[in-house]
Amino acid sequence: MTSSRYTFAVNICLFFSVLLLVTSALVMPVLAKDVVILNQPDSVHDTRYEYSYKLMQLSLIHTEDDFGDWEITTSDYPMTSGRVLPELMTGELINVIAEAPKTQWSEKLIAIDVPLRKGVQGFRIFIIKQQNQSLFSDINTFEQFKLIPTGSGMFWSTRFAMEKAGMDVVIGSSYDGLFHMLDKERFISFGRGINEAYDEVETYGKIYPDLIVEKNTLLHIPLVTLFHVSPAHPQLANRIKVGLQRIKDNGLFDEAFHQEHCQFLVKSQLSQRQVFTIDNELISKQDHKEMLKNKEVISPKTNFDEICLTYIEE
């Protein structure tokens, strides 16, 4: 082969090699950044979503290699309970929320079936005014307990469970407003998850100094908190599901749960309280029994002093 013919052949080979590389680059899938838009808290005092946001972050971090970059942001303003569902349907202003299942949500949204708080949000203790503790100290039956007026948000799933059980439920229109109503004794008690009550008394006690956590009773409502994802973002739902499973498998999920909840599980002294259990029609007794069996949720009768010893010492 002459020198010119050799050079021509080499150039042809180089040309097709470059063409192959360019073509490969063009057809190679580019992973777009996953943007999670969560609901903005109701107020500067509202810390209810911080733990679920932490789990979201862990899930996204542990799926970076196969799903790519990510970002977590919040809506421009808080979404009221009534507006959340239609906005989630479009997925434009908000595309993920951590909430208990509600009627129609399972049909219209993508629910990730991993109980984020292991059911402890259904361990309801009550914020009251200090002078009303005597009303609860001698309660021994649910018939006595249900007569005391208690506050609830309008669209909270716990509201419907309490009403169906015959409790005297007074409805408030806003999170901050419910504490104002409690202070004005529009109702006597305000049921909160054990993960919420103590922090809220500390926060709102600066405004309403008579607030305390009631010491004698606990209302157990089978309840789970799940991530609900917009149907407009199925790929994001898949990533969150994969990420949650990974942090469950590597132990980070349980570690985050105990670090967040152990201080409240021990402080609330569940074993010394009168426990009243009512049904939640959104979770069947059989489903709850299976979740207990699979350790996806925990029982209020568990010995938390022993389980939480390491985490509280830390």
Score class of each variant (00 low, 15 high):
residue 1 M to P: 04
residue 2 T to H: 01
residue 3 S to F: 06
residue 4 S to Y: 04
residue 6 Y to H: 02
residue 7 T to G: 03
residue 7 T to R: 11
residue 8 F to W: 04
residue 9 A to Q: 13
residue 10 V to I: 14
residue 12 I to L: 10
residue 13 C to E: 00
residue 18 V to Q: 14
residue 19 L to N: 00
residue 24 S to L: 11
residue 26 L to A: 15
residue 30 V to E: 13
residue 33 K to V: 10
residue 37 I to K: 00
residue 38 L to D: 09
residue 39 N to M: 07
residue 41 P to W: 11
residue 45 H to S: 15
residue 49 Y to Q: 04
residue 51 Y to W: 05
residue 52 S to R: 08
residue 53 Y to C: 03
residue 54 K to R: 14
residue 57 Q to H: 13
residue 57 Q to K: 12
residue 58 L to H: 12
residue 60 L to P: 08
residue 61 I to F: 14
residue 63 T to Y: 06
residue 64 E to I: 10
residue 64 E to V: 12
residue 65 D to W: 01
residue 66 D to Y: 05
residue 67 F to R: 08
residue 68 G to V: 08
residue 68 G to N: 13
residue 72 I to W: 14
residue 73 T to S: 01
residue 76 D to W: 07
residue 77 Y to I: 09
residue 78 P to K: 05
residue 79 M to Y: 05
residue 81 S to G: 15
residue 82 G to W: 01
residue 87 E to R: 15
residue 88 L to D: 12
residue 88 L to Q: 04
residue 88 L to A: 12
residue 89 M to T: 14
residue 91 G to R: 11
residue 92 E to S: 15
residue 95 N to T: 14
residue 98 A to D: 03
residue 99 E to P: 00
residue 101 P to F: 06
residue 108 K to N: 15
residue 110 I to D: 06
residue 115 P to C: 13
residue 116 L to S: 07
residue 116 L to N: 03
residue 117 R to A: 02
residue 117 R to H: 05
residue 117 R to L: 05
residue 119 G to T: 04
residue 124 R to S: 00
residue 125 I to N: 06
residue 128 I to R: 02
residue 131 Q to I: 00
residue 132 N to V: 02
residue 132 N to A: 08
residue 134 S to P: 01
residue 136 F to I: 01
residue 140 N to P: 00
residue 140 N to S: 06
residue 148 I to P: 14
residue 152 S to N: 10
residue 153 G to N: 08
residue 162 M to D: 01
residue 164 K to Q: 11
residue 168 D to L: 12
residue 169 V to S: 14
residue 171 I to A: 09
residue 171 I to F: 10
residue 173 S to D: 09
residue 173 S to M: 08
residue 176 D to F: 07
residue 176 D to P: 10
residue 180 H to S: 10
residue 180 H to G: 07
residue 181 M to E: 05
residue 182 L to H: 09
residue 185 E to T: 07
residue 186 R to L: 02
residue 187 F to T: 05
residue 193 G to S: 06
residue 194 I to Y: 04
residue 199 D to T: 07
residue 200 E to V: 05
residue 204 Y to T: 01
residue 205 G to S: 08
residue 208 Y to V: 10
residue 209 P to M: 06
residue 210 D to M: 09
residue 210 D to R: 15
residue 213 V to D: 08
residue 213 V to R: 06
residue 214 E to K: 00
residue 214 E to Q: 06
residue 214 E to L: 00
residue 225 T to L: 03
residue 231 P to H: 11
residue 231 P to V: 07
residue 235 Q to Y: 07
residue 235 Q to D: 14
residue 235 Q to W: 08
residue 236 L to F: 13
residue 238 N to Y: 12
residue 239 R to P: 05
residue 241 K to H: 11
residue 245 Q to I: 00
residue 248 K to I: 12
residue 251 G to T: 11
residue 253 F to Q: 01
residue 255 E to G: 03
residue 261 H to P: 00
residue 264 F to D: 10
residue 264 F to H: 13
residue 268 S to K: 04
residue 270 L to I: 03
residue 278 I to H: 07
residue 282 L to K: 14
residue 285 K to L: 05
residue 285 K to D: 09
residue 286 Q to G: 03
residue 286 Q to R: 03
residue 289 K to Q: 12
residue 290 E to N: 07
residue 293 K to S: 09
residue 298 I to D: 00
residue 303 N to Y: 00
residue 308 C to Y: 03
residue 309 L to R: 15
residue 309 L to H: 13
residue 311 Y to A: 02
